[in-house]
């Protein structure tokens, strides 16, 4: 399979080797009716090995989710069989409803309808803080 085989769709390139399934799940790709290809451990000059995901439809990708999981990913938009746009990601400044605040004293543990909002506090260390209580977010449930 190569890019030419997609007429209209999206190619996620430069995924760190081994993380493609995490991205597949985080973006909800298993629910798509179109064909989706996951290519693992592709040889890469820059990365040694990388993963690639090809999506054979022009869907809306949540770039914040993707940027949070791996800001090094390149998003290629394919129209009529050619790459029309390359998007480079960055860590999103805000994450909404990705994980829950782990501070048991946070208002989000009590007020049911609040969005869980996390603000990027330290890009170099990839640290987010809860918008409400400022608690640093760590661990598997955290963003």
């Amino acid at each position: 399979m190569n890019i030419d085989s997609i007429r209209r769709g999206i190619v996620l390139d430069h995924i760190q080797a081994g993380r493609s399934m995490e991205i597949y799940r985080a973006l909800g790709l298993e629910e798509l009716p179109c064909s989706v290809a996951i290519i693992r451990n592709v040889k890469s000059n820059a990365m040694g090995k990388k993963d690639i995901i090809k999506i054979d439809d022009d869907i809306d990708i949540d770039l914040d989710v993707l940027g949070y999981i791996d800001p090094g990913i390149t998003v290629n938009i394919i129209v009529d069989g050619v790459i029309t746009e390359k998007k480079h990601l960055a860590l999103p400044r805000r994450l909404v409803n990705m994980g829950r605040c782990r501070n048991p004293r946070c208002i989000t543990t009590q007020e049911a309808n609040l969005d869980q909002v996390f603000v990027l506090a330290d890009p170099a260390r990839k640290i987010y803080r809860c918008l409400y209580c400022d608690a640093e977010q760590r661990g598997t449930d955290a963003p």
Partner: peptide
Amino acid sequence: RHPKEGAPIA
């Protein structure tokens, strides 16, 4: 005043 942290932002 509220016992939960961040309540005034909400």
